[in-house]
Design a protein around this nucleic acid. Structure first.
Length: 841
RNA sequence: GCCGAAGUGGCGGAAUUGGCAGACGCACUUGACUCAAAAUCAAGCGGUCUCUGACUGUGCCGGUUCGAGUCCGGCCUUCGGCACCA
């Protein structure tokens, strides 16, 4: 830290006699200006103990909301605390600045997205500074800046060169409101994640990232993330959706072709009685063309394809199917089974075909009953031979195989592997792992994003833009039209270019990248934000990445966190980072609500950070937001609660104000400490120990703050008892500790009080105090006396007695003697210095 | 339906390893200061009763234990996530 060691008030009015009242409106801007002028939060790159604290960077929507204030408050307490603990802390901030709202603003208000975005950044940065958050602003990044998206494009080409970016025609999710495609992860309940409009499926040629190549590692390495909340890991695990099973080829009767089918239940293979294809399955047309079934099947397919994905994936949807007229052959027993087309089979999962085993799969069971398809039991409980006709539901429990030729009598769990081996031996199929995860669709038909740096040439095909021509800049002279296609596609000067390979006429790709790409690598850029030859240098990023503590909203449990993990792994494989995971610890902070509901304009329950800063100051707002609930839980905003925190800070202020002069001249006149002096000192050191543990190990800022309050309450009791007759040495120690441990929470007040106590160096440059174990020693303890587990008395006993001595003292207590008098003592349980329980009959 | 988290005063929440349930704060009540109010300081504050004491109490039912908010079994409710995944 550069500003370290600087005497800060000799050259200014910083240390002037303070005003009598706590006035955050005066002191907060004063210290913010001081920190800024002295570049106070600049990262120390030389330190040995490094810690990277990162809050998810915001989208520059215009104003900060309480959710932002909460994340930043959490991050800043940690950053300031860790600096006092001797760490070199990297604590940067930036802007996830590409995205649709800017473009919509452009359409609505005729203001260029860049202008709108940068104005918002200005406004929000100002708010962050008004909160007193200790960011190293020299590392600020904005993903929409050409010197940032140049490297986003560079990384796209890296992915392309590694075979991880490819273009294909596929059925993709289209949001009709946003006029662009979406990745699978960005569809929630069949709606667009941003605007909730129902998405429709379109066949389009689009760019994808091959995230499925990393499915296994993304799943496996979740094991490394013990510092993540379990629910986030589980969500990712479910999203990746690994299934192990077999892929089996069913030859089509009277054809050279076959239908590949994925199943997790190869043990039920002898029970297959029909086959169902997805409506979009390429074999459907082939099987029915020119047959009597053609018209029926065609009508069914058309009807099914018209259904939205929401309707199709709803459990309420009625399962329907039609017979194609064709049959395929079960390879293991040579049986002919009918091929149907069904509305519940998804082309995107497995092979788009399902083998029907109605006796052992509930869905198949219902479907078979409805269409009167045959049913065969192939797994039966050992002691009870099942008959297909008797079944009222599918038998899905474990059992032994029947009607399964060579495998009869064997337990079905073991047979899964054996049947798979049997399939391999006969070349009928093989073991197969399927994932629910799909490749990441990254094209967006919008303007305000990083252009995909690709060129299409009639001679050379698809050609990446060479590095020296990066960035491919967004043209500024574009026209934004309501509901239209991307302005880039309508911009001839942008569209027409020359081929980097042959120099001939060529066309640019006019799609831009999903903004989640921008945010998948920004935490690397912070470590080397000025680099103009690489996105970041390995030695710089290796000093900090992985991020030690990442903090953000749970809404990114899959999206941003999965994509960032993928990016880190690719960058690792390409030799750019040693990290295999981007975020060692993750804190998913809860929402800020008011009156039991999410803050929203329509409910009229919005409280803005600005009004809180204006009325009470940033320190009070920060303190309340951390005090009201543990960080990972929802927080209910309470105006009364805020006032309580304001009161507390004023209480601290008055305490320090009253004794600052007395304790700043502590000299040889110190008196001998009496009992109440020592009690106060014990309260302080107890609080200090608890605050340290709460921040460091548990992130329980709410209980940390309550401990500081207890210490301050103890100081008030002491003050009321002693008035001016205090022990100056102990009072000095108490006041300094209170100010030091409060400083990360209320940094402005901390600074002001520290000066008031006669110091000439910033409180934020001080070492975190360590508690004195000697101060915690007590001579007497209160021991609870129970009879049969019920509290009957409390005795004050000397500390450190052994069990026997405690029991003797307890039994001789008059109250207890009476209670136990005519009873038989069965046993006595003793917890030293705490409790004695006498069990009687 | 499946997976996960949670359920404690009037409210937000605490109790970290099975050992005094309700820390801390809010609200409320009372006292001091004041002509008065605000601010501030101090005291009280789960419920019930026969009130210097006892009983009862951490979603419900049961269990383990000298002792359970905490551990075990079975439910109920709320909130998140996933959901024809073959």
């Amino acid at each position: 830290m550069q500003a370290c060691g600087q005497v800060f008030f000799k050259d200014s009015s910083m240390g002037g006699r303070m005003v009598a009242e706590y006035n955050p409106r005066e002191i907060e801007p004063k210290w913010q200006k001081f920190w800024e002028e002295h570049n106070f939060n600049r990262t120390d790159e030389e330190g040995q103990k490094k810690y990277y604290v990162l809050e998810m960077f915001p989208y520059p929507s215009g104003r900060l909301h309480m959710g932002h204030m909460r994340v930043y408050s959490i991050g800043d307490v940690l950053a300031r605390f860790l600096r006092m603990r001797g760490f070199s802390v990297l604590h940067p901030m930036g802007w996830d600045a590409f995205g649709l709202p800017a473009e919509n603003a452009a359409i609505e208000r005729q203001v260029h997205p860049a202008q709108w975005t940068y104005a918002n950044i200005e406004a929000m940065r100002k708010q962050q500074k008004a909160l007193g958050i200790s960011y190293d602003w020299e590392r600020e990044v904005a993903t929409c800046a050409p010197d940032y998206y140049k490297w986003t494009q560079w990384l796209f080409i890296l992915f392309y060169n590694r075979g991880l970016a490819y273009k294909k025609k596929a059925a993709v999710n289209w949001c009709p409101h946003c006029n662009t495609v979406l990745a699978n992860e960005q569809v929630e309940d069949g709606g667009c994640w941003r605007c909730s409009s129902e998405v429709v499926v379109k066949d389009l040629e689009q760019w994808f990232f091959r995230i499925t190549d990393y499915a296994e590692r993304l799943l496996d390495d979740l094991k490394l993330l013990s510092g993540w909340p379990e629910r986030v890991r589980t969500m990712q695990e479910n999203w990746i959706g690994k299934s192990e099973g077999a892929q089996i080829r069913f030859p089509i009767k009277g054809s050279e072709r076959h239908i590949p089918v994925f199943t997790t239940r190869p043990d039920t293979l002898y029970g297959v009685t029909y086959m169902v294809l997805a409506a979009e399955h390429p074999l459907v047309d082939e099987l029915t063309l020119g047959t009597p079934q053609e018209v029926t099947v065609h009508a069914f397919v058309a009807k099914t394809r018209k259904l939205t994905d929401v309707a199709r994936s709803s459990t309420e949807m009625i399962k329907e199917g039609v017979f194609t007229g064709a049959y395929c052959i079960n390879p293991v027993n040579g049986e002919e089974v009918p091929i149907l087309v069904g509305n519940y089979v998804l082309l995107g999962y497995g092979t788009g075909a399902v083998m029907g085993v109605p006796a052992h799969d509930q869905r198949d069971f219902e479907f078979a009953r409805k269409y009167d398809l045959p049913m065969r039991v192939v797994i039966s409980p050992r002691d009870n031979y099942l008959q297909a006709e008797d079944l009222t539901e599918a038998f899905v429990d474990e059992g032994v195989l029947v009607h399964s030729s060579l495998f009869d009598g064997k337990p079905n769990v073991a047979v899964k592997k054996e049947i798979t081996e049997y399939l391999v031996e006969n070349n009928w199929g093989e073991a197969k792992i399927t994932y629910r995860l799909r490749d990441w669709l990254i094209s967006r038909q919008r303007y305000w994003g990083a252009p995909i740096p690709m060129v299409y040439c009639d001679h050379c095909g698809t050609v990446p833009v060479p590095e020296e021509q990066l960035p491919v800049l967004l043209p500024e002279d574009v026209v934004f039209k309501e509901g239209g296609k991307s302005p880039l596609a309508d911009h001839p000067a942008y569209l027409h270019t020359t081929c980097p390979a042959c120099g001939g006429d060529a066309r640019r790709e006019t799609d831009t990248m999903d903004t989640f790409i921008d945010s998948s690598w920004y935490y690397f850029r912070y470590t080397d934000s000025q680099n103009d030859t690489l996105p970041f240098a390995k030695e710089k990023s290796d000093a900090w990445v992985p991020v030690d503590q990442y903090i953000g909203g749970i809404e990114h449990a899959i999206l941003h966190l999965l994509y960032s993990r993928f990016f880190t792994k690719v960058l690792h494989d390409a030799g750019f980072t040693s990290a295999v995971e981007p975020f060692t610890r993750l804190l998913a902070q809860g929402m800020v609500n008011k009156d039991g509901a999410k803050m929203s304009k329509s409910k009229g329950n919005v409280v803005s950070p600005d009004e809180i800063i204006e009325k009470y100051g940033a320190d009070t707002g920060r303190l309340f937001i951390l005090f009201a609930a543990p960080p990972e839980k929802g927080l209910d905003w309470s105006d009364r609660g805020v006032e309580g925190c304001y009161r507390f800070l004023k209480r601290v202020w008055r305490l320090v104000d009253r004794y600052a002069d007395a304790v700043s001249h502590v000299g040889s006149e110190r008196s001998t400490a009496d009992e109440s002096d020592l009690t106060l000192r014990r309260a302080m050191h107890t609080a200090l120990k608890k605050v340290t543990d709460d921040i460091e190990e548990r992130f329980n800022f709410n209980t940390a703050i309550s401990s500081v309050m207890e210490a301050v309450n103890a100081a008030y009791s002491y003050m009321n008892e002693k008035e001016d007759n205090i022990h100056p040495g102990i009072m000095a120690e108490i006041l300094e500790m209170v100010v030091l441990i409060l400083a990360p929470f209320a940094p402005h007040l901390g600074e002001e009080m520290w000066v008031r106590l006669g110091h000439s160096e910033s409180v934020h440059l001080q070492d975190w105090p360590t508690y004195d174990p000697a101060a915690l020693v007590v001579s007497e303890v209160e021991v609870v006396v129970q009879v049969n587990g019920k509290v009957r008395s409390r005795l004050t006993l000397p500390a450190g007695l052994n069990a026997e001595a405690m029991q003797q003292l307890v039994v001789s207590d008059e109250r207890i003697t009476q209670l136990v008098a005519d009873k038989q003592v069965i046993k006595v349980v003793t917890i030293p210095d705490k409790l004695v329980n006498i069990v009687v009959r």
